[in-house]
Design a protein around this nucleic acid. Structure first.
Length: 952
DNA sequence: AGGTCCCGCCATATT
DNA sequence: AATATGGCGGGACCT
């Protein structure tokens, strides 16, 4: 019932003061206040007067002047109250929320989040003080924001931004001032526009936050400070999230990443868009429209055509479909935002009309048909466009057609994302600051290793990106937060331990996931790869990191070639025929040292669950896969590699960029990131940069631990890691080598004969990369059941496949992928790849893992792999690989089971394996497939489906 | 009159 | 069950 009203109500809305909203009676609706939120209302009318004043001040802040909305008032009160409570932090909103507070993300757990205003019973709602606060905040939000921005760091940016957006902001400001008198002016609608609100929101945070800083964003807090309903903030955050500027950390909390990764994200989107053939679609529609126009009468072909068209759209389906199936998430603003951006990125003219965009999006979703839907889509696009405009990525223009003018938007953001680039710069038009950042960063980054950094970034990305679902899940563990970058600090020991923990976590998560299964992956399930899905996209973006990781490995691997045992020079691996299991050893030490693992650190900090970081690996993997897909068509590689580059140290956050491509499975993200990543993204990222290698073991570890225990044992011997508890810090850092550097394969059935052994050590060898680059994996050990391999013939070789080389169908090119990257983790060395993963017999445990996930991962891996490979190759053959982590792959096909290891990884493998090259190859194909499958089914279902399918 | 898009109900997802 | 999210679209504002 009243729900609606709830808390949110408070705010804002009102704004319009009575009048504005006028139209609606809305207020009343809520009356009832059912829930707690209502309470707020209950509070009663705050003072309207007060409100007004505030309004005036704020201007924007619309507090609800309107009396009408008593509710609103209450709400506001609530907010206010909340705020105060909550925040002590910032008394005023403005505060700097950002950074400082943020501090991180950390810990805060801030969680404040939860606060619910509800309680707010306070009747007092307005205490004088509160009022004052409100007023203050309200009063100058804009100003504050500006100031903040400026202050924030980069003055440059600030200035830029301001410039960039001058409009809105200024207006506001102006208005405010003028407004003076408050009421009088009630804020015009414009003042309340989403674009402006977004600018204000953006003003609160630095475009390029320092890596160290993690800024935590409390939705409640922001909403209250900006004087709007939380609902509005969601609109903004969802779009920002689609570009990875923020990531959801926990309930009510988001982590601000800034634009560091923007480029990569855009790049990824571009690639995906290309894959999706959006260009074609756009052209198609345009033509149609024209035709129609002329003809006009005809129904829009669209409808009809839509269906007809679809063929073209197939891919589209992928996206949507799965999504649709999934849940609303798929339809989410987030996804729409990504797709919308993709349209610009693939458009030659860089101009996209809303109607065409809406049509394309609708088609994908397929609903197309009705007009109402069309209208709705357009509405949403306006929302998205407003945010993108605030970001300086697009600007409104009008396209004049014979029929008339059509509203359209032109992309004014970065269009070329070639390789590396500095991150910072990016996109944001406005921010001049960027350059600075960039430079610094870049330099650093470059210096650092790209690879690692990348990984780190990815990690962060991933974290951030996780799709909602994932995130949430992850988030659930909210705690996570924090983890700071200690990681860096963390020595190898920690690293190791972390890895272990991660692995364990991963497993757990996997299991959990399995249960839950939500991954976005679902969509992926099969080969398909629904990259499309938005979530995926999100994820994918991150991939860059993954990519990196992968690449290296790939290269290495590739050389190897299938099976053959050869040892590659740089590579560390060896293949054995028929062994049953693999064990990987990595030196943690090195890795650790290198790594840092911020993540690990994070983990530590984090709750164990979070540690799940293993997920990260997964994530990485997944991402990889994603890339792969993307890459299939596109060359993601560049993204991966290029982008990242630098940053190594940069703050993780910055880095976070997502490298790329693809999408990671949400979950993976989440899981991985979520926990670790998420924060990670914030924090971890940083680390990442720092750390060097890591092995990716994590996953492996986990798997090992859990499922694989056996192998693990051995491994473990080395360390205790294991366990789930990983937390223990192993100190090993340096010390320990955690694992030897080899990979073991037990002979067995598995691989059809082949087993691999990788030397872990590679690390070094890997060297170069490794540390820096590879952050990813550090895997302490991985065991792979030979069986696992069985399915895949090659295993190792992913390398073999050679990077670019097409993988033969059966081969799983990806395998390479296997790599798992763990972003955070990465260890250097070892890696292996086996694709296989670890699956062990134990699968049982594993079972939990979702096939989907796996699949996704696999997909990613697959897809990515190529990229990675390239990268790797490019980067360094030597490198070790990356990843290695073995993830287990579950073979999807065969069984779902297995997947022990890090989910993601596994998945990746799995899919890859499963999928035939061909499948991989055709994105579309799988997409469709997936789409179909996924669409309908729920995530869970999907999983199932996947499994089955995959199995196939 | 048509383009924008605020606002908040209410379905879903999470906790 | 209570909350958090966020889809959705009525209908108000602005050209």
């Amino acid at each position: 019932m009243s729900q609606g009203a709830r808390i949110e109500a408070w705010a804002p809305s009102a704004g319009s003061a009575a009048g504005s909203s006028a139209g609606r009676p809305p207020c009343h609706r809520r009356l009832p206040a059912p829930h707690g939120s209502e309470l707020l209302r209950g509070c009663g009318p705050e003072m309207e007067g007060g409100c007004l004043a505030l309004k005036d001040l704020s201007r924007a802040r619309p507090i609800r002047t309107s009396l009408a909305d008593e509710e609103g008032d209450n709400a506001q009160k609530e907010n206010i109250c909340d705020r105060s409570r909550i925040a002590p932090k910032t008394p005023l909103k403005n505060e700097p929320i950002d950074l400082s507070k943020q501090k991180g993300c950390t810990p805060e757990k801030n969680p404040i989040t939860p606060i619910k205003p509800v309680d707010r019973p306070l009747a007092d709602p307005w205490t004088p003080t509160s009022n004052l606060k409100m007023l203050v905040s309200a009063a100058s939000p804009d100003m504050r924001d500006r100031e903040k921005k400026k202050e924030l760091f980069r003055p440059i940016e600030n200035s830029e931004q301001n410039e960039a957006f001058p409009d809105s902001l200024q207006y506001d400001t102006v208005d405010d001032s003028t407004a003076d008198e408050f009421d009088k002016q009630r804020p015009s609608r414009k003042q309340k526009s989403l674009g402006l609100l977004c600018q204000k929101f953006l003003a609160r945070y630095p475009s390029y936050p320092l890596s160290t800083e993690k800024t935590t964003i409390s939705l409640d807090e922001v909403a209250s400070s900006l004087g709007v309903e939380r609902r509005r903030i969601y609109d903004i955050v969802n779009v920002l999230e689609s570009l990875h500027l923020v990531s959801r950390v926990a309930k009510n909390q988001y982590c601000w990443h800034g634009q560091h990764n923007l480029r990569q994200t855009l790049k990824s989107l571009q690639e995906i868009g290309l894959l999706q053939k959006y260009e074609e679609l756009m052209a198609y529609f345009q033509q149609k429209e024209q035709d129609l126009d002329y003809k006009f009468g005809e129904r829009k072909k669209e409808n009809v055509s839509d269906s007809q068209d679809r063929p073209l759209l197939d891919f589209s389906e992928t996206d949507c479909p799965s999504a649709s199936a999934n849940s609303r998430k798929d339809k989410s603003l987030r996804i729409m935002s990504q797709k919308f951006v993709m349209l610009f990125l693939v458009s030659k003219t860089k101009i996209v009309t809303l109607d065409i965009a809406a049509k394309i999006l609708i088609e994908e979703s397929q609903d197309a048909a009705d007009h109402s839907k069309f209208k709705t889509k357009v509405r949403r696009l306006y929302d998205i466009a407003n945010v993108l405009t605030s970001l300086g990525l697009i600007k409104k223009v009008h396209v004049t057609e014979e029929r008339g003018r059509k509203p359209a938007f032109k992309w004014i953001g970065p269009m070329e994302f070639s390789g590396k680039s500095d991150e910072p710069r990016m996109d944001i038009p406005t921010s001049a600051a960027l350059p600075e950042m960039k430079r610094g960063v870049c330099t650093q980054h470059q210096t650092c290793t790209n690879g690692k950094q990348r990984l780190a970034r990815h990690a962060s990305f991933n974290a951030s990106q996780p799709s909602e679902g994932i995130k949430r899940k992850v988030s659930s563990e909210p705690s996570s937060p924090h983890r700071e970058r200690q990681a860096c600090t963390v020595g190898s020991d920690e690293y190791c331990s972390k890895m272990i923990n991660l692995a364990a976590v991963c497993r757990q998560k996997m299991e959990e996931d399995t249960r839950d299964s939500d991954y976005s992956l679902n969509s992926l399930p099969h080969e398909v790869f629904p990259v499309a899905q938005s979530d995926m996209l999100h994820l994918s973006l991150p991939n860059g990191t993954n990519g990196q990781v992968l690449q290296p490995s790939i290269s290495t691997v590739s050389k190897t070639e299938n099976g053959k045992p050869a040892v590659l020079p740089n590579q560390p691996f060896v293949c054995f025929p028929s062994s049953s299991l693999f064990m990987l050893y990595g030196n943690l030490q090195e890795s650790l040292s290198k790594e840092n693992f911020p993540i690990a650190g994070e983990k530590d900090n984090r709750s164990p669950e979070e540690q799940a970081s293993p997920l990260n690996p997964q994530a990485a993997v997944s991402s990889v896969t994603c890339h792969k897909r993307s890459s299939q068509k596109l060359a993601l590689p560049s993204m991966l590699v290029g982008n990242e580059e630098p940053a190594a140290k940069k703050p993780a956050t910055e880095q976070s960029d997502a490298p790329i491509s693809l999408v990671l499975p949400k979950k993976s993200f989440e899981s991985a990131e979520g926990e670790s990543l998420l924060d990670g993204s914030c924090a971890s990222t940083l680390h990442i940069g720092a750390f060097h290698l890591d092995l990716g073991t994590p996953a492996a570890d986990k798997s090992a631990e859990k499922d694989i225990a056996e192998p693990l044992d051995s491994l473990e011997q080395e360390e205790p890691l294991r366990n789930k508890d990983f937390q223990e810090p192993l100190q090993e850092n340096g010390k320990q080598p955690f694992l030897p550097q080899y990979l073991y394969l037990q002979p067995g059935a598995g691989l059809s004969g082949f087993n691999f052994l990788f030397s872990a050590n590679q690390t070094h060898s890997a060297t170069g990369l490794s540390p820096s680059q590879l952050p990813s994996l550090s895997i302490p050990c991985v065991v792979v059941p030979s069986t696992a391999f069985a399915p895949f013939p090659l295993i190792c070789s992913p390398a073999i496949t050679s990077p670019l080389s097409p993988v033969p169908p059966g081969s799983f090119p990806n395998a390479a992928s296997m790599s798992f990257n763990m972003p955070g983790l990465a260890s250097t060395a070892p890696i292996f790849i086996g694709t296989t993963a670890m699956v062990t017999p134990k699968t049982s445990q594993l079972p939990s893992v979702d096939p989907q996930q796996l699949a996704h991962s696999a997909d990613f891996a697959v897809h990515l792999s190529p990229v990675l490979r390239r990268s790797c190759s490019t980067a360094e053959p030597d490198s070790p690989v990356c990843m290695g982590h073995p993830v287990t792959l579950r073979k999807l096909q065969q069984q779902s089971s297995i997947p022990l290891t890090p989910k993601s990884i596994r998945s990746t493998h799995n899919e890859a394996f499963f999928k035939t090259p061909g499948s991989l190859g055709d994105p579309v194909t799988w997409k469709k497939t997936e789409g179909n499958q996924t669409r309908n089914s729920s995530s869970v279902q999907r999983r199932l489906e996947i499994d089955s399918n995959g199995t196939d």
